[in-house]
Amino acid sequence: MTSTSTPPGLARFNALDQDAALAALLDACASTAWARRLLAARPYATTEDLFTASDAAMAELTAGDLEEAMAGHPPIGRPKPGDPTSAREQRGMAGASDELKSEMLELNLAYQEKFGHVFLICATGRTGEQMRDALKERIGNAPEQEREIVRAELGKINRIRLTRLVEEDAPV
């Protein structure tokens, strides 16, 4: 039999005032449009409801909204100093050789030159080599194709971050 009670972390998120909830959502994804859509749909009964709302909001983002979301992500191999989230998500690059780090820097710059934004991939659980190989593969994409891949990768990242948001014991 399934429980009908809201998980404690999700209940805590639902109970946050608007400003605190918006800040927590913007920590998960830098798109204001995405965060506002999720905020407007509170309260959530289940984590799956939150994920469904996130996926729907992600599907509706404009190109400008996607750019805003991507601006919140540092390049692969260069996590934001003092940011445990980007360091945790990019852990696969932490032990990378100097050669791989140098190659990633060059590839990141070429990608950014072509597409006008950082290479975005759900890096959680990936090795540096896997991220490099994905970058090498995706740099050949057409801009429209790459935008939809970025949208899907952002969706994956958002689910991971939302899970942390509603499962962590500490208040937001």
Rank of each mutant, 00 (worst) to 15 (best):
D55F: 07
A33L: 03
R12K: 08
M58Q: 14
S86W: 10
E167A: 09
G92Y: 10
A94C: 09
R88I: 03
A63D: 12
A41M: 09
T47Y: 09
P81N: 03
E48C: 00
A56I: 12
A69P: 00
A30G: 08
A57H: 00
E144G: 06
D49H: 09
T85E: 15
T52K: 15
R147A: 15
P143R: 12
F13T: 00
T4Q: 10
H117S: 14
C29P: 00
T52M: 10
I121M: 07
M93Y: 05
A71D: 05
P81L: 07
T4R: 09
P8W: 09
A23G: 10
P143L: 07
E113V: 07
P74S: 05
D17I: 08
L135C: 15
G82P: 02
T32L: 12
T124C: 06
S102R: 15
T4C: 14
K136H: 11
E168K: 15
A152Q: 10
E137A: 11
Q90L: 07
N141Q: 07
A170Y: 10
F13Q: 00
I139Y: 04
A53G: 14
D49V: 03
G128I: 05
R91T: 08
K136S: 09
A71C: 03
P74D: 11
L38C: 01
M93D: 01
P7K: 03
E113F: 04
N158K: 03
P171D: 13
A57I: 01
P171I: 04
A35Q: 09
D17F: 15
L22D: 05
P81G: 04
A134F: 02
R36F: 02
L120M: 04
T124L: 15
T124H: 12
A30L: 12
T6M: 01
D27Y: 02
S31C: 02
A11N: 04
I76G: 00
E60W: 01
L135R: 02
A152D: 13
Q18V: 13
M1Q: 06
A110Q: 14
I157A: 11
P75C: 11
L162Y: 01
N108T: 11
L135W: 01
V118Q: 04
A57V: 07
M58W: 04
L135K: 09
M131C: 15
G140A: 10
D133F: 06
T47A: 15
D169H: 10
D55E: 14
E144K: 09
D55P: 00
L22V: 04
A96E: 06
E148C: 08
A152P: 01
L154E: 03
E168W: 09
I76E: 04
A21D: 04
S31D: 02
A41E: 15
F51T: 00
P84S: 05
D19C: 05
S3M: 13
W34A: 01
A110E: 12
T124Y: 11
A152M: 13
L16R: 01
R147H: 11
K114D: 05
L16D: 03
H117Q: 13
L26Q: 14
P84R: 06
S86T: 13
R126M: 06
P74G: 11
H73V: 15
I157S: 02
D65G: 12
G140D: 09
A63R: 10
T85Y: 13
E137L: 14
L105V: 14
E106V: 14
A170I: 11
P7L: 04
M70Q: 04
S54Q: 14
N14M: 06
G95K: 13
N141K: 02
E89K: 03
N14S: 06
K101W: 05
R12E: 03
S97C: 13
R12V: 00
D65Q: 05
P171R: 08
